[in-house]
Amino acid sequence: MAGQQGREPTNFIALLSEWADAHLTLVRSISTGMAIAGVILLAKSIKLTTKFTNALEIPVEFIEKNVKLRGRIHHVSEQGLEIEHIPISLPIISSLQKRGHSDGFLLVRLAGVELTPSGTSWLKEETKPAQMMWFQLLGRKDSTLDCLVIINKGRFSSVCLNEEILRQGLGRTVQIEGLAHDSKMYWKLHKRFLQAELKAVKKNKGIWKEETFIEKIKEHIRNYKYIQKLKQFATWLRIRF
């Protein structure tokens, strides 16, 4: 203690200033890096809060990273689902965005599924306009998105429409557009779809329904009666002419 008498207190601010002067390039690099990171984060946040009204507006990186978006089903047609995109709402970011024309719907197909007319009818009956849902981006072709579509069926449950259509025998499994065939995600989803389709095959549902024994007997009787009428007509022709 005695040896420290007469010394001035250590000036930490001055030391820090001297260190910064000596390492000015490093300090500038850190500041620049933080600024760039902030700009990137802001840009990503703005994209997440943007309402997409056309498939072509969605950034390519969203498709490549298979981002999940939220929305409501507006209409069901033979071409697919017309979905209103409901973006994430962040007050600070939203205040920076320009308010513009926000009308329009995204056309979404159930990836990996070939729908039957019965499947389209089933979707119209099972989905409601105000029902919240999520659609995971898997691919995009022109103005159509190929997605994994998940709807909420209750407070704690949800249903993947791609799988449910196959499980009900209302569609067939086809290749998943937009995903590389050698990717892990492709085979994971394709396996799930095939398993769902197999359940419909085992239970004879939808397009996989087989005629019952009685239905087969009735068909044979109808065919027999038709053949008998043809024979009677042939006999009548011979007698007549």
Results as ranks from 00 to 15, higher is better:
62 F>N: 03
188 K>Y: 06
189 L>M: 08
181 H>L: 15
79 Q>K: 15
176 I>S: 02
110 L>R: 07
55 A>R: 03
113 V>M: 07
150 I>A: 00
233 F>G: 06
67 V>E: 12
168 Q>C: 07
113 V>W: 00
188 K>A: 09
143 S>E: 14
139 G>K: 07
93 I>G: 03
130 A>P: 00
240 R>V: 15
23 H>G: 00
134 W>L: 11
143 S>H: 12
127 T>E: 02
41 L>G: 15
188 K>I: 02
27 V>G: 02
60 V>G: 03
85 H>Y: 06
10 T>M: 09
170 L>V: 07
76 V>D: 09
142 D>G: 09
91 P>V: 13
4 Q>Y: 14
188 K>R: 07
205 K>M: 04
94 S>R: 08
137 L>V: 09
206 G>V: 05
208 W>V: 02
134 W>F: 11
180 A>M: 11
207 I>R: 02
101 H>D: 14
81 L>I: 13
162 N>I: 04
96 L>C: 07
21 D>A: 12
96 L>K: 03
44 K>I: 00
192 R>I: 00
241 F>E: 15
185 M>P: 01
8 E>I: 13
101 H>G: 06
169 G>K: 05
147 C>M: 12
128 K>A: 09
69 L>K: 12
23 H>C: 04
90 L>Q: 06
136 Q>W: 01
195 Q>F: 00
129 P>L: 01
165 I>G: 00
185 M>G: 05
234 A>K: 09
213 F>G: 07
35 A>R: 09
114 E>N: 08
159 V>C: 06
222 R>Y: 13
162 N>H: 07
3 G>L: 15
84 E>H: 12
226 Y>G: 13
224 Y>N: 14
126 E>G: 00
154 G>C: 00
228 Q>H: 13
35 A>N: 12
218 K>D: 14
210 E>I: 03
171 G>Q: 10
131 Q>E: 13
211 E>T: 04
172 R>M: 10
184 K>V: 15
205 K>H: 03
34 M>E: 08
185 M>K: 15
36 I>E: 10
192 R>E: 01
223 N>E: 13
210 E>M: 04
217 I>Q: 08
198 L>V: 01
20 A>V: 13
235 T>R: 15
154 G>R: 04
207 I>E: 02
76 V>Q: 07
88 I>F: 02
103 D>F: 05
24 L>M: 09
181 H>S: 15
164 E>I: 00
65 K>M: 06
22 A>R: 07
156 F>W: 02
64 E>I: 07
101 H>R: 05
105 F>K: 10
124 K>D: 01
153 K>S: 11
83 I>P: 08
42 L>S: 03
171 G>R: 12
108 V>Q: 04
172 R>E: 14
1 M>R: 10
34 M>Y: 09
227 I>E: 13
187 W>Q: 09
124 K>I: 10
94 S>Q: 12
208 W>Q: 00
50 T>K: 11
153 K>Q: 11
87 P>W: 01
196 A>P: 00
100 G>N: 08
72 R>Q: 14
67 V>Y: 11
16 L>W: 07
17 S>F: 04
82 E>C: 15
123 L>A: 08
72 R>P: 09
143 S>T: 10
23 H>I: 03
32 T>C: 14
109 R>A: 10
222 R>W: 08
174 V>G: 08
50 T>V: 05
225 K>P: 02
121 S>T: 10
88 I>P: 00
163 E>R: 10
10 T>R: 03
32 T>D: 13
112 G>H: 09
54 N>H: 11
87 P>H: 03
36 I>P: 06
101 H>P: 01
75 H>G: 04
